[in-house]
Write a protein that binds this DNA or RNA. Structure first.
Lengths: 313, 313
DNA sequence: TCCCGCACTGAATAATTATTCACAGTAGAA
DNA sequence: TTCTACTGTGAATAATTATTCAGTGCGGGA
């Protein structure tokens, strides 16, 4: 019937538009049909299934997993990177590169970047960042104090400084230990004007970069000297904590596992973190799987994970 | 390396754009990438083959054949209609419907339509046209005289009148025989003021509807009484004529086969026809295949054909 | 080292496309 | 028949997308 003729016309238009790359106005002239009708018929071409658009995922890319992560944890964006070996270092490479690409691609002019220390992933990410040419961050703020051991302390400092260099920003260091000996000691540190200058920037942070720590097999915590006593760690574990972000511990549901420890940590608090427009969490490896769950459940924006084996659909 | 990350990003954007129907501006906000970059990355998505657009021809539709016709004969548009039986009448139905759809879909407001008589296809087309609602033609001009036999003469008149009604236009009849007895007789007819009024409109014709006649097994010519003598027809054939448009005969290459006959035909001449912005030729059936070749080679804009069997690729 | 020329970016803007609007026509209900 | 709701149209316009432009960095040849 006339249906055939109409479909023929639609297909013809679709061919001219998608196939031959003509503008709607050109088709309009050629076929003596108004541009508005061409536009409407092209819309129908999709409905009728005459044109179909197929998107094929590039190799080593996992859109389904990413979508599942976004969906499940309400993330604005999730990026999954693949890794062919199960070595810790290979995994760090993979997420470092992925995170760096995201960062470079995504950082806007004039951002105030908050960066947590104590994270091998962040270290790797920064290692992989090329100097930003186009845009400059306003400043890079260290949002977690360093570590007791001075040599590791300087690691944290370097992380912040390095990122500031790369982004052309002013570094704002947090010249204090990440974990004070006591609540009182922390208050004393807060009296320091440099410390205050930095913590005052917390509210201005526009993008926070954080790692996700595992409570159980934790390299960082092990290296932290005796910031935390074994007793404290066991207490945390007993109360369900499985990981941390900025040394704020979380249970499997992403609930904050508080306690006296919180009073000793010199860094951004969870509510402060939640107030940051964009929180970028970087983590990888099987060790981090459960903590990721926790962290994601909380309030983040972005998250990387990298597994040694191809993730399941 | 970074290629993977870039492709991942492109695929992500493509999914958001084509799959989820987001605007580029929304994606821009979501992914923290400028709209200009989104646009550019979407373009790359096509180049990289991440998005592919497939156009599937509806059933009973022959885009390849149509393209070949357009290509080969330089037509602006070609429409092929299918027909399941080989009966003459079924073929006429098919092209009538197709041509009517084209006409309805395509006629603009205020056109001056020229219509040839002597064509069963045009008859059928007009039969299939629904009254035009939206637009009105200015006038419908008969561009070929009627036929000797008065009853058939009135056919031509009705064709023109009918189309004028359907398009809300003023009919301009050509009250004269299509083939005068002699060159002199034609000149006499041209003296008639009604005839002149109509022929004066020829130059204003904006869309000409013509059939394509076959010289050899010609129903119309047979019915024409003795407008042409057998001798004349044989002479035409000898000189290579295989078909006609508006009783202007053409050879297999589309060249005009002139002669004294031309001086007796009361209708639009080939040069006049060529000057019309849009010439729509309607023909179908195997009988018309060779004449189509001729006609197409000439100078037309549009052409239908309908074959009983599915056309080859 | 200094200078092209190329490549790439975001903002501004041009170009293109989708939608609104006003108006008919049509079908179905009253 | 008359009304109303709905459909479909092109012109005008709003919205969206592509491109230009100006600026910057990089690479490599002089």
């Amino acid at each position: 019937m006339s249906r055939t003729h109409e479909l023929r016309l639609i297909a013809r238009i679709a061919q001219l538009y998608y196939g031959d790359g003509l503008k709607q106005a050109e088709i309009s002239r050629l076929l003596h049909i108004s541009q508005a009708s061409i536009s409407r018929l092209l819309a129908r071409a999709q409905e009728e299934g005459i044109v179909r658009i197929a998107i094929t995922a590039p190799r080593d890319t996992f859109p389904k997993t990413e979508a599942a992560l976004r969906q499940r944890y309400g993330l604005e964006e999730a990026i999954v990177a693949d890794c062919f070996e199960d070595r810790e270092d290979a995994i760090l490479s993979a997420i470092g590169a992925a995170a760096a690409h995201y960062f470079e691609t995504t950082m806007a002019d004039g951002e105030v970047i908050g960066i947590s220390s104590w994270s091998a992933s962040l270290l790797r990410m920064v290692d992989n960042i090329h100097p930003l040419k186009r845009v400059k961050a306003e400043r890079v703020v260290q949002i977690l104090g360093g570590i007791g051991n001075p040599s590791v302390q300087s690691h944290a400092t370097q992380l912040t400084t390095r990122l500031a260099q790369l982004t052309g920003a002013e570094p704002m260091l947090l010249p204090a230990q990440g974990v004070a000996g006591s609540s009182a000691a922390r208050l004393v540190m807060l009296g320091d004007s440099y410390v205050r200058a930095t913590t005052d920037q917390f509210r201005r942070v526009t993008m926070a970069l954080v790692g996700i720590g595992a409570l159980q097999p934790s390299v960082m915590l092990a290296n932290s000297g005796n910031s935390f006593t074994n007793e404290e760690l066991q207490d945390l574990a007993r109360r369900g904590a499985i990981g941390d972000v900025c040394l704020r511990f979380l249970d499997a549901e992403g609930r904050h596992v508080g306690g006296p420890l919180d009073e000793r940590v010199m860094g951004m608090s969870l509510p402060e973190l939640a107030a940051v427009p964009r929180v970028v969490a970087v983590a990888g490896g099987e060790r981090k799987a459960r903590p990721c769950t926790a962290r994601c459940s909380a309030a983040s924006s972005t998250c990387w994970s990298s597994t040694a084996s191809p993730p399941s659909a």
